[in-house]
Simulated assay, not measured.
Amino acid sequence: MKREEMKASLMRYRDAIVRERQMAGELRQLRIRRRMLEQCQGAEAADAAQSIGKLEQEIARNVEESLRTRGEVLALIGQIQDPSENAVLVLHYINGDSLERVGEKMDRSERWARDKHTQALDRLCGL
Rank of each mutant, 00 (worst) to 15 (best):
E5Q: 11
M6V: 06
M6L: 10
S9G: 04
L10M: 04
M11T: 00
R12E: 11
R12L: 12
R12V: 01
A16Y: 02
I17M: 15
R21P: 00
M23Y: 09
A24V: 03
G25L: 11
E26L: 14
E26H: 08
L27T: 00
L27M: 09
L27G: 01
R28L: 09
R28W: 03
R31N: 02
I32K: 12
I32H: 10
R34A: 09
L37W: 00
G42V: 01
G42D: 07
A43S: 10
A43I: 02
E44D: 07
A45M: 01
A45T: 01
A46K: 06
A46M: 11
D47E: 12
S51P: 00
G53I: 04
L55S: 03
Q57C: 11
I59H: 05
A60D: 05
V63G: 05
V63P: 01
E64C: 13
E64W: 13
E65R: 14
E65F: 12
R70F: 10
L74K: 07
L76A: 11
G78L: 08
G78P: 03
G78T: 02
Q79V: 03
I80Y: 09
Q81P: 04
D82L: 12
S84L: 15
E85H: 14
V88P: 04
V88Y: 14
L91D: 06
H92I: 03
Y93R: 06
Y93E: 07
I94L: 11
N95L: 12
G96T: 03
V102Q: 08
V102T: 10
V102K: 12
G103A: 05
K105Y: 08
K105A: 06
M106L: 14
A113Y: 15
R114C: 09
D115A: 15
H117C: 08
T118S: 15
A120I: 07
A120T: 02
G126A: 14
L127A: 06
